[in-house]
């Protein structure tokens, strides 16, 4: 974690608080987005955190960036922040030149490379219609490479995920691209890990916000002549939220602490698998606590629960990570405790 972390997080959170109101999150449904907030982020160098200064970035490290992503999740900020910063992080780690315009990414299969030109279709590409660049895996006879593609050459069909966030279909035909060398298995896996870490950060922020909204609501809502948090059955629900929130934050912090270590992949895998429980509990309990009001468009809860429901099926999911761990266990002789204490501590 770099020294700039606290300061930059402070600045970013104040901007998000001021700019990203409930109404601003709603404009996404009309196909618009929070350009003001984006410009502020850009002017303050927040979108170029974790890009080294010698490459024109703002410095800081991946942990700083993940904490910023967590904040954009906490405010459901309708800006392509996670997308642009992840795209740039992938470019940076592949020694490609980073970009200073809106960018997005896709690590799914779908693009083919022939004669150094990219063709194919990718579905559910986040924010593609608003982005200038796409960073994607492309497949050739040699293997998988990372490509930086100008979306001006693409056909884009708009669509959204369950949370009304842009998830578009991108089709390319013999488009030019800047290409990385062929990636090793480890590099491909690392990119997927970091993609997952970004999702974990977003989810952590949304879970924090849902917990806040829910606790606040149980203090304000009165029935039978008293605030509902005084009822034991409601308290039981509040504790479920508190537990899942504490677990999510600790999981996120441990992923961050492991960023520099060789055990990162296990930490990310376990965090991501555990977030399945957290999301199932947090979404159902928070809606139950809010009852009817929570189901309305007018109240903000759905802006966070819908995002969690959408995000959990985007990118490498918990099944992907369970498979990874199961294969690891099958191929290693360590006893379980030795494995857990060796891989899960950042020695």
């Amino acid at each position: 974690m770099s020294e700039m972390k606290d300061m930059i997080l402070d600045v970013a959170e104040r901007m998000l608080k001021d700019y990203i109101t409930k109404d601003v999150v709603d404009i996404l449904e009309k196909g618009d987005w929070a350009k003001d907030a984006w410009n502020l982020f850009q002017d303050n160098g927040i979108i170029s955190v974790a890009i080294p200064e010698e490459h024109g970035g703002a410095g800081g490290d991946l942990e700083d960036l993940l904490n910023l992503v967590r904040l954009t999740g906490k405010y459901a900020a309708p800006i392509p922040f996670a997308e642009t910063t992840l795209a740039n992080f992938l470019l940076e780690t592949s020694n490609l030149t980073t970009v200073d315009k809106i960018a997005t990414y896709s690590l799914q299969e779908g693009f083919i490379l022939q004669n150094d030109q990219v063709s194919g279709t990718l579905h559910n590409v986040p924010w593609a219609r608003h982005a200038k660049y796409l960073v994607a895996f492309v497949k050739s006879n040699q293997g998988v490479q990372l490509a930086l593609i100008d979306l001006a050459d693409a056909t884009i069909q708009s669509s959204t995920n369950m949370a009304s966030e842009p998830r578009d279909t991108v089709t390319m035909s013999d488009a030019k691209a800047q290409l990385s060398p062929v990636l090793s298995e480890e590099q491909i896996f690392y990119a997927r890990s970091i993609e997952t870490a970004f999702k974990i950060a977003l989810m952590t922020g949304a879970i924090e916000k849902i917990n806040e909204l829910s606790v606040q609501y149980t203090k304000e809502r009165e029935q039978f002549g008293r605030p509902i948090h005084r009822f034991q059955l409601v308290q039981h629900q509040i504790v479920q939220l508190a537990g899942e929130t504490a677990i999510a934050i600790a999981a996120f912090n441990n992923v961050c602490a492991a960023i520099q270590s060789k055990n990162l992949l296990h930490e990310i895998a376990y965090a991501r698998i555990r977030f399945e429980d957290a999301i199932a509990t947090v979404t159902s309990v928070s809606h139950q606590l809010h009852a009817a009001i929570g189901m309305t468009h007018e109240y903000a809860l759905h802006q966070y629960t819908r995002r969690l429901w959408a995000w959990r099926d985007e990118g490498p999911n918990s099944d992907y990570w369970s498979e990874h761990i199961a294969n690891y266990l099958l191929n290693h002789d360590d006893k379980l405790w030795a494995y857990l204490t060796k891989t899960l501590e950042n020695s």
């Binding site: 504490a246 677990i247 600790a250 999981a251 912090n253 441990n254 930490e267 895998a269 376990y270 965090a271 698998i273 555990r274 399945e276 429980d277 099944d319 990570w321 369970s322 498979e323 761990i325 199961a326 294969n327 266990l329 099958l330 857990l340 899960l344």
Partner: peptide, 27 residues
Amino acid sequence: ELKRQGNKEGLKQATKLLSRLWSLRNL
């Protein structure tokens, strides 16, 4: 046991328990 049986599906299920253990241990 799951490793002895080469039961990958079972191991995948068991990773839920490992992830819960991991997250509680963090706390």
